[in-house]
Simulated scan of single mutants.
Amino acid sequence: MALLDVNNLSISFGGLRAVDDLTFSIEKGELYGLIGPNGAGKTTVFNLLTGVYKPTEGLIKLDGTDITGHTTIDINQVGIARTFQNIRLFKKMSVIDNVKVGLQNDKELSYSTLDGILHTPKYRRIEKEIEQRALSLLAVFGLDEEKDVLAANLPYGKQRKLEIARAMATKPKLLLLDEPAAGMNPNETAELMETIQLIRDKFEMTILLIEHDMKLVGGICERLTVLNFGRVLRQGSTKEVLSDPEVIKAYIGE
């Protein structure tokens, strides 16, 4: 059974069909790409998957559970986390505190207000566990030595990594990455590619990626869907899709 099943998904804004009859599925552990030019509807799809928008038609299932039209909070709690094209960090908080925010979704790491006020043994135990989990995640991303640095003071590429680390802190089943290479130089993009592959392998993570950098897409994605004005132009293996003349002509510009 696929981890994510999207069937006949559609949404309209004022008569404009932004996403039209989209169907695709992603297997557990797969690294899947969603590509197309600006305005093709890619980010709208992410907004539908995460509950920002409610679809006009269609069905979304995560691990067999219907999540169509659920709230953003509910969808995050059942296992979808995302990053954004424009990095959204708590810039005035430390690196480790950004990750701790993501860990707050874990019910095992919760305590009462009274525990917090009185600094009970439960409070101290859970706070220690939160600290250890946050440090472990930061180590995966090579950010543990910068745990006390303000997020705003990190280089751009490391801010990207931190945003992904914070998303991973919510323990998702499916990670949505929205143009993670945007604004990066070639060296940062190469490091990002390694990071994404590491996440998939270490955590057996299923990843859906929106990206314009075709070198990155071709280097890590196993299958692709290409959107054109909200409709599917081509679907299939990465090699087949990227060699399709219509895809090359319309989206890669070669």
Rank of each mutant, 00 (worst) to 15 (best):
M193P: 02
F229Q: 13
I207P: 01
K92Y: 12
S10Q: 05
L48A: 00
I220F: 13
G102I: 14
K171F: 13
I248E: 14
E211G: 02
P172I: 15
E127P: 09
D244W: 05
G58A: 02
R124L: 14
K147S: 11
D244E: 11
G51M: 06
C221A: 15
N38C: 14
D115A: 14
F24H: 09
I67A: 05
L114A: 14
I80P: 06
L209D: 05
G183M: 00
N86H: 08
G51T: 03
D178T: 10
G253E: 07
D74N: 12
L137D: 11
I130T: 10
L49R: 04
K122P: 04
P180F: 06
N7C: 04
K161G: 06
Y32S: 02
E240K: 14
Q159H: 09
R166N: 13
G15A: 00
I73Q: 05
I11F: 03
L175T: 10
L9E: 03
Q85R: 00
A165V: 11
T56K: 00
E191R: 15
G142L: 00
L242K: 11
R223Q: 05
F84S: 02
L233R: 12
V6T: 03
L3R: 08
L198Y: 11
V19D: 02
L162D: 04
L103I: 13
G142E: 12
T44H: 02
G142R: 08
I117R: 05
K54C: 00
I35M: 09
G102P: 15
Q197C: 07
P180A: 02
P155W: 06
D63T: 03
M93D: 02
L177G: 05
H70G: 05
G58Q: 00
S243W: 10
T71Q: 01
G41M: 06
R231H: 14
A182H: 04
D106A: 15
A182S: 11
G29M: 01
V52F: 13
L135G: 13
T83E: 08
L49G: 06
K147D: 01
V140D: 11
K100Q: 15
I67C: 07
E179S: 05
L135N: 13
G58C: 01
H212P: 08
L227T: 07
E30K: 07
K249L: 06
S243L: 04
L208T: 09
E57V: 00
A40V: 03
N7G: 04
L216R: 09
E246F: 07
R234K: 15
V19R: 04
G15K: 09
I196L: 08
I164G: 10
K91H: 09
V217H: 10
L233K: 15
Y123Q: 06
L114D: 09
R231Y: 08
L209S: 04
A165C: 13
E188K: 06
G29D: 06
I199R: 06
T238W: 08
K249M: 10
D63R: 13
L118R: 14
I67G: 07
D97T: 13
Y251H: 04
E163D: 14
K147T: 06
N187D: 10
T120C: 08
E145V: 13
G64Y: 14
T71G: 12
R125G: 04
K92M: 13
T43P: 00
V95R: 03
